[in-house]
Design a binder for these strands. Structure first.
Lengths: 200, 200
DNA sequence: GTCTATAGTGCGATAGAC
DNA sequence: GTCTATCGCACTATAGAC
């Protein structure tokens, strides 16, 4: 057994587990049970065995604790864009990127996503933050397109359209009783987007 | 002259002008000069000759003061949707709605929009709120489409796409040195959106 | 119009890892 | 010595309750 492993075990006894993780779990639980406004940061910290001050070392504010791992999330969507075929249409590049990023959200992850989404939907403050995260994703997608030479405003239009499809598909995926995979729903949504210019 | 009119005049003398309006003007000025975080609600209220308590009677929070008149804004976009031709494509209906709502923003209004936008862009808290307002507009547009019988998810996809075009065009409209009208830029952006499926 | 809870910040101290 | 995670205390401002 290496010294590092021993150290980790010692730390886990002292700190039980990664503080950040514990804070996120405690927050989701408390926000679900009592609601966002009725939960204080002190309560979350206490439930995680930490202090209020430590909470704010990990998360800039009370909302942010629900949106952990945004960097990893964003990276799943953007990594493949640089290596897409050089002559591909902007919306096709974005389509592949959205599908690639969404593969992570398997059916096993659906219950957790559902719990998280319920909390977000119930609190405008969290909905706001969610929209900002989606805007950040759109920005990252647009950046990746521009790096490939796609000019403005096409890059932004394609990126934002991709995020729209993701959000619409996401909501459908989490709809009561749904059994279809997220990528499946997204494929259909991209087709419906293209069909929008046809007469109804 | 009715008693109500006399009362209104007396009140206007007593309050100098509409309090809500003065608070908005003072807030925009202070947010521009000092920044959002460095400005307290007490300072805004004082600049408007009112108390802190009165500020919160008019606006739910410190951000909301920048987003006055959202209802009127939203209505300009949604009113014409019900009377659009019955066989029109969803995205064409939305296109007309966005252009109709945008006509309000003439070149004379551009300087004010520019000042407002600069403050919003500089402060993530305000950007968040702006995104929520845009989401609200998208929701209203989708509602209007559904009322016409456009099914989901087409209604939401079309509405969200329209708001994407509006936002992209809005940014271009406020770009340094721009002389084109907002609706002009939007017309082009809708075409570019349709062209997104073509190979680049 | 006054009172109060709590979100969020600044600065400093402690303690362990390396 | 540095770096990182934690806690402690004092403080202000927002926002809501009374």
């Amino acid at each position: 057994m290496s010294a590092t492993v021993i150290t980790m075990i010692v730390l886990m006894v002292r700190w039980e587990a990664d503080g950040r993780d514990r804070l996120q779990k405690a927050a989701l639980e408390l926000y679900t049970e009592r609601g966002f406004d009725e939960t204080t940061v002190a309560e979350i910290a206490q439930a995680a065995g930490l202090t209020e001050r430590t909470f704010f070392r990990h998360f800039a504010d009370k909302r942010e604790v629900i949106f952990g791992g945004q960097e990893a999330f964003q990276e799943r969507f953007t990594t493949d864009i640089a290596t897409a075929p050089p002559d591909a249409a902007p919306l096709d590049i974005i389509g592949s990127a959205v599908l690639a990023g969404s593969e992570f959200f398997t059916m096993e992850r659906r219950p957790h996503s559902l719990r998280r989404q319920a909390v977000i939907a119930a609190h405008p403050e969290l909905r706001e933050r969610d929209l900002l995260k989606m805007a950040s994703l759109a920005g990252a997608l647009a950046d990746a397109l521009r790096a490939r030479g796609v000019p403005e405003p096409s890059a932004t239009l394609a990126a934002e359209s991709g995020v729209v499809v993701f959000r619409v598909a996401w909501d459908q995926w989490l709809t009561d009783g749904n059994t279809r995979s997220l990528v499946d729903i997204e494929r259909e949504a991209f087709q419906q987007l293209a069909a929008l210019t046809e007469r109804g």
